[in-house]
């Protein structure tokens, strides 16, 4: 198991917080995808993806964020990205994806 990347999922009153920690690239993205598949979201929940401790994110990481968004959409839940690193914010903007995600300054903000 890679120690470069880990995920934690915690339940909060509004829904779930999925924290992505470390380096998210093509070798660690499957672990992120797996964590996303395991999320049990109910209609009306809010999924907060906490990126405060995400150190690196390439296109496979973007794919994981999109997967999380479509999973939330299918469940009737909403998604928000918390503490988006500056570079990732710029990349999301370039890719035209900034409007797809609500952003929060941090995961505690509900």
């Amino acid at each position: 198991m890679s120690t470069r990347f880990s995920t934690t999922t915690s339940a909060v009153p509004a829904g779930l917080v999925l924290a992505l920690v470390g380096e998210l690239d093509s070798s660690t993205a499957p672990a992120a995808q797996e964590a996303i598949r395991r999320l049990t979201l109910r209609a009306g929940d809010r999924l907060i993806v906490d990126l405060a401790r995400l150190e690196f994110c390439d296109s496979s990481g973007i794919a994981a964020l999109i997967a999380a968004r479509s999973l939330a959409g299918r469940a009737g839940a909403t998604i928000a990205l918390a503490a988006v690193p500056r570079h990732l914010g710029k990349v999301l903007g370039l890719l035209g994806l900034a409007d797809l995600f609500t952003t929060l300054p941090n995961a505690d903000h509900t």
């Binding site: 794919a63 999109i66 890719l95 035209g96 409007d99 797809l100």
Partner: peptide, 13 residues
């Protein structure tokens, strides 16, 4: 401005 990644989401603009 606003052109989205292609293939990522169904209703891309």
């Amino acid at each position: 401005h606003g052109g989205m990644l292609v293939g990522a989401i169904p209703d891309a603009r």
